[in-house]
Structures are given as C-alpha cells and as structure tokens.
C-alpha cells in the first residue's frame, strides 16, 4: 500500500523534561521576542497561566508548561519546522533552563480502510491465535522499544501502535514514534545540549518516521 494513501494525519509533539517556570512562557513574551507574530499574541487562546501550569494555543500550536515538562503539540504539518524554530527560540532566550531530556514524537494516524486489513494489521503485529483462550481477542495497544538507540546516542526509540478514531473510516491506527534523547553522563543539561540535539536531529527524526512506517507496512505485507 502506498504510504501516502495510508497516512491521513501527522501530528508532532515535542516534550522537554527539565526545570521550567510556567509563568514565564506567555504569548506576549513570545511576541516581544519576535518568536511569534504580534497578531498571534493578540488572538491567542489562553487557558491557564500560573506558576505551576501554563497552557495556551495559537492557531497552529498548543503549548503546555509544567514545572518539570514542556510540551508542544502541532497537528498541522506545514508548521512542524516552525514549531521546532519556536522551541529553539524559547530555550535560546531561556538559556539557564536545565533540560534533561527531549522527546520528538510523531504520531501518524493511518487509515487501513477495510475491516479485513485492520484485523490483519493487528493480527500480524501480534498473532491472536496465541490468545485463543479468550473470547474474541483483540489487540488494542502494542509498544516496542529500541533499548539502545541505533545512532548510539543516550535515549531510546519507541513505537506505540493503537487504534485511532481520527481518520475517515472506522479502521484507523495511530503509529506513535517517540524519539527520546537523553544527556551524556558528563552533561548537565544547562549548556544548550538539548537545543543542539533538537537542531541536529529534528529533520532526521522526521525522515526516520517515514522509513519506520514504510518498513513496518512492508514487513506486515500491507
């Protein structure tokens, strides 16, 4: 199956783990630094701004900041690079923020179109005949981890597959690829290490997701 006809929605989540001050990252601060348009700061949808939790949305991105996590969500592919630039900009201005880990998460919502293909997909991933002692067994979640990253960097590579209700038909699956980067033993996270990782790995991470999904489909014979 041609991957283009199979993938319907691509979303990007960037997760930074470290020590953050949620009250600082506000829309007007972003506009003042030139990281977003002023008009976007005017039209922002703010839900919470608090020193423990901040959440606001622009048209193309949602930002959630906790004291130990910084999450950025985007489901509009044209803005993926802009999201990367935004994160780069935010943490460039907040240089003193210690960041211990970075997760570049791509979730591809794929439409298998027919019940047969949907069932076959799950069955190929995990043969249900092994569970024939259950009444009408179904797989609802599979998670596989590459314990040592193939590029040798600290972190892990994790693929999670589960049903998706975001596609056109009833036969959707979400392939969630978590590209997780950690610090080297001698790194503190306070010297822009994660920013360098974001800059150097963002594009490759996106390309690898495409390879992963292609390989998975090929291995499953879909």
């Amino acid at each position: 199956m041609d991957i283009k006809s199979f993938v319907e929605i691509k979303t990007l989540h960037l997760t930074f783990v470290g020590n953050f001050n949620p009250a600082i990252v506000q829309p007007f601060w972003l506009a003042q630094k030139g990281l977003i348009r002023e008009s976007e700061a005017q039209e922002v949808k703010v839900e919470v701004i608090h020193n423990e939790f901040t959440r606001f949305s622009l048209d193309w991105v949602r930002i959630e900041v906790r004291q130990d996590r910084f999450d950025v969500h985007c489901s509009q592919e044209p803005y993926f690079d802009i999201v990367r630039d935004l994160c780069f900009g935010i943490f460039n201005y907040l240089k003193e923020t210690p960041i211990k880990a970075l997760g570049i998460n791509h979730i591809w919502h794929c439409d298998l179109k027919t019940a047969d293909k949907y069932y076959e997909f799950g069955n190929s991933l995990s043969p249900l005949k092994n569970f024939d002692f259950l009444n009408d067994a179904r797989m609802i979640l599979l998670e596989i981890i590459e314990l040592k990253r193939s590029d040798g960097k600290p972190g892990a590579y994790r693929i999670r597959i589960e049903p998706s209700d975001k596609v056109s038909s009833l036969f959707g699956v979400a392939i969630n690829v978590n590209d997780h980067f950690g610090l080297e033993p001698n790194e503190s996270g306070q010297n822009g290490e994660m920013l360098k990782i974001l800059k150097n790995n963002f594009d490759a991470s996106g390309k690898r997701v495409e390879e992963v999904v292609n390989l998975l489909l090929a291995n499953l014979g879909i």
Partner: peptide
Amino acid sequence: ILTEDRLNAINEISLPEHPNYYTLTQR
C-alpha cells in the same frame, strides 16, 4: 479562578487536539 484542586484537575484533563490538520502537504 484557580484553586489547588482545580489546578490538579486541569493537569489531569487531556483536551482534544487541534481539529485542523493537513492531509497532503508539500513544503
């Protein structure tokens, strides 16, 4: 208006993602 309880509650609530997405893009 925030209370400690409500802050915890908001933490737990997972809001739906953006309804806008692209089906085919050239960049």
